[in-house]
Amino acid sequence: MNTILNVIWLILAGIWLWIGYMLAGLLMCILIVTIPWGIASFRIANYSLWPFGREVVSKPTSGAWSFIGNVIWVLLAGWWLALEHLVTGVIMCLTIIGIPLGIANFKLIPVSLAPLGKEIVESR
């Protein structure tokens, strides 16, 4: 079932979300100081391309620097990525078949706002 959802996701939303995260990552990697945000953006880009069967969890070792980094991230790129998820999720929820995909989009909004201190693991 995860494979079917992932293929539908890839066609309807995954490509566009991946492009958004990749652009954000490239912009963040232009300056040396913002490379950690670029790496986090690339990690979330791969997750947003094929999300079903995986989940995002908080790293137990992340601390205050992750929080400060996430605040900076929201100002630089997080808000427009969250907006991208919100718009895509609302559009997906217009059809009955798209409702699970829309809900998945809404679940990605917190990750798009705070990618530092998170890791992607396989679902059980």
Rank of each mutant, 00 (worst) to 15 (best):
I44H: 03
L76V: 15
W16M: 11
F67L: 13
G14M: 00
M1W: 06
I99W: 11
V7W: 09
N2W: 13
W16G: 12
E55R: 14
V74C: 14
H85V: 13
N105G: 10
A114D: 00
V56I: 15
G53K: 05
M28V: 02
I35H: 11
T88S: 07
L94I: 08
M22T: 02
R54D: 00
V111P: 01
L12P: 02
S48W: 08
Y47R: 05
G98M: 13
Y47S: 03
S112K: 01
L83E: 00
V90Q: 14
T61P: 00
I8G: 07
M92G: 06
S123W: 13
C29F: 09
L94C: 10
I120V: 08
L76Y: 07
V71N: 01
G14C: 02
L10E: 03
S41W: 08
L113F: 05
S112D: 02
V57N: 09
L49M: 15
P51A: 14
L27G: 12
R54K: 10
Y21T: 00
G14W: 02
V90S: 15
L86I: 06
T3E: 14
A104T: 06
L49F: 15
M28F: 10
N70V: 12
M28K: 02
L27A: 09
I68P: 01
W9K: 10
N6Q: 09
V7R: 14
I99N: 15
K118F: 05
I109R: 05
S62A: 10
N6K: 08
P51I: 11
K59E: 11
G38D: 06
A45Q: 09
L31V: 12
I35N: 15
T95D: 03
G117W: 04
E122A: 12
G53V: 06
M28E: 05
P110W: 01
F106M: 07
I109M: 09
W65I: 10
C29I: 13
V7G: 13
I32A: 12
P100Y: 09
I35G: 12
V74M: 14
M92C: 14
S66V: 04
I44N: 00
V74P: 14
W9T: 05
V57H: 13
M22R: 02
R43C: 06
A13K: 00
T88F: 07
W80S: 04
L12R: 15
I39C: 15
Y21K: 01
G102C: 09
E122K: 13
I68F: 12
L5V: 05
G63H: 06
S112Q: 03
L75W: 07
S62N: 04
A104Y: 00
G98K: 09
M1E: 07
V71W: 04
E55I: 12
Y47D: 00
W73I: 06
W37F: 13
G25Y: 01
I109Y: 04
N6Y: 09
N70M: 08
I19R: 05
L83C: 04
L94Y: 03
A114Y: 00
N70D: 13
C93F: 03
L81A: 01
I97L: 14
L10M: 12
W16R: 10
E119G: 02
W65A: 11
L27D: 05
G78D: 04
L116Q: 07
M1H: 06
S41D: 09
L76M: 12
L5Y: 13
I91K: 11
T61N: 11
A77I: 01
L49E: 13
G25H: 02
L75R: 01
M22L: 03
G38T: 05
T3V: 14
P110L: 03
L26V: 09
W80I: 10
